[in-house]
Every structure is written in C-alpha cells, then in structure tokens.
C-alpha cells in the first residue's frame, strides 16, 4: 500500500513537472510611448441615428491611443520567427468580433489560421464587413440588422490587415492571422502577455497600425517555467 502511495506521488510530481515543461515560459511586457500622440478626435456618428443614440458620451478614434501612464494601447505583439517547423492545435472556440455601438470590439485582434471568427452585429443597423486581406481572399459581406452572427475562417497566416465598414467609415479594426497562438494586444495599461511559449530563441515583433510608428523587433530566449520581461518603446514623430 505504501509503495502504491509512493508511486502515485512520484507520478503526480512527474506529471506536474511535465506540465510545467510543456507549458514553457511567459513573455510579459509593456509598450511605452515617448512624446505626445495626436489630439483625440471625436467620431461624428450623425450619419446613422442608431449609432448616434448608442453613445451618451463622445467616442474617440482608436487609431492612436496613448494611455494615462504614457503607454501605447492596441499594439499587436507576436512571435515573428523561431517557431518554424512547429505546429500548434487550432482552438475550437471562435474569436469574437463584435460590431457594437458602430464600433469594432476588439479594435486590434488576432486569430489562428483555420480558427473560426464569429462576427456579430449587436447594433440595430446595417453593417458591411469588408476585409482588406491580401493572402486570404478579400470579402465584403453584408450584415443587415436582422443578421446577428456570421462565421468566417481565414485559412492562411497573414500579416496584419484591416477590416472595415464602408457604411460607417470610422469603423476599422486590425487583425493578424497567425500559425501559432503566441500573440497579444497591449491593453489600457500598455501591458501584454504571451503565455506558455515553448523554450527557445525568438524574434518578437511589436506592431502598431500607424505607419508613422514603425514595427519593432527584439530577440529573446525563453526558458521553461520562466517569465521574461520584454518592453518596447515607441516615439511620436518629431518635426525636423
């Protein structure tokens, strides 16, 4: 009996250790921002009364959002290289892109190639969902107000591209399609996390939608079970 307990404990420890090993390490970091961003631009939604009444307060453009702690929001951080030859299971649960208050939620997002993207229309108005993808087939899909949900799948990995609504020209979001699950978007504190990255050396890229904020890369080595801190700093363009 005692031997059985020992065996069970040993197996448990081994299982736990293997889980840690399989889980890999985390990459955590912050996107700092130097300088001042563009003056926040209030979006005029008068063109569609449904959009206008959906907001009691002004809604501002999400193109360049500098947080109060001088960090940058909506930066897509992802592993650019170092994962070649590895395959990762595609999550069964869909990524949700909602059209709510005539804004896209989330504004910047990622999905794995082959993963279902559930596009919702929570508004009582019409939208068109116009994908500007180049590797995956472009589409322009009607979403009348009675159509509340449609699924789409992007089959191939593709660098970040825009999806927009031409009915409401201020609506534009950005999506990256990855061959792996290691991507994250900086939040309202400028923070991001890439979880359970296998041990190895990687090039990590930080991308922002503004062409004036060029993408940055850093090379790091991840060790199993460790959390690595990786910060990026973007600077506002300066006048010469």
């Amino acid at each position: 009996m005692r031997n059985l307990i020992k065996l069970a404990m040993t197996l448990s420890v081994l299982l736990l250790a293997s889980q840690i090993l399989l889980a890999g390490g985390d990459i955590k970091g912050r996107i700092n921002f130097k300088g001042s961003g563009p003056k926040p631009r209030a979006i005029k939604m008068a063109a569609d009364p449904v959009c206008k009444v959906a907001h009691s307060e002004p809604v501002y453009s999400q193109s360049v959002v500098v947080n109060e702690n001088a960090t940058l929001r909506y930066v897509m951080v992802s592993i650019e290289s170092g994962l070649e030859g590895q395959t990762f299971p595609v999550p069964e649960e869909p990524v949700v892109l909602d059209q709510n208050g005539c804004m896209y939620d989330p504004h910047v997002w990622g999905a794995m190639a082959g993963q279902t993207v559930e596009i919702r229309n929570s508004d009582g108005t019409l939208h068109n969902v116009h994908s500007l993808s180049k590797v995956n087939r472009q589409f322009n899909m009607a979403m009348p107000k009675i159509v509340k949900k449609k699924n789409k799948v992007f089959d191939k990995p593709e660098d970040i591209f825009a999806i927009k609504c031409d009915v409401h020209p201020w609506m534009r979001c950005w999506v990256g399609i990855f061959s792996h699950p290691f991507y994250s978007v900086s939040d309202d504190q400028g923070d991001f996390t890439l979880k359970d990255v296998p041990a190895g050396t990687y090039t990590v890229r930080a991308w922002h939608e503004s062409k004036r904020l060029l993408a940055q890369t850093q090379t790091i080595t991840v060790k199993e079970g460790e959390t690595i801190t990786l910060d990026f700093t973007f600077e506002a363009p300066t006048r010469k």
């Binding site: 019409l126 068109n128 116009h130 322009n140 009348p144 609504c165 031409d166 009915v167 020209p169």
Partner: peptide
C-alpha cells in the same frame, strides 16, 4: 468613401 457600403449588386442588401 462609400463605394463598398452596399456589398451586393445589382441587389441592395439582398
């Protein structure tokens, strides 16, 4: 920038 606000043609939103 409304050129594609109606995705179908010759119909309009079906």
């Amino acid at each position: 920038g409304s050129g594609l606000s109606v995705p179908d043609w010759p119909n309009t939103y079906g």
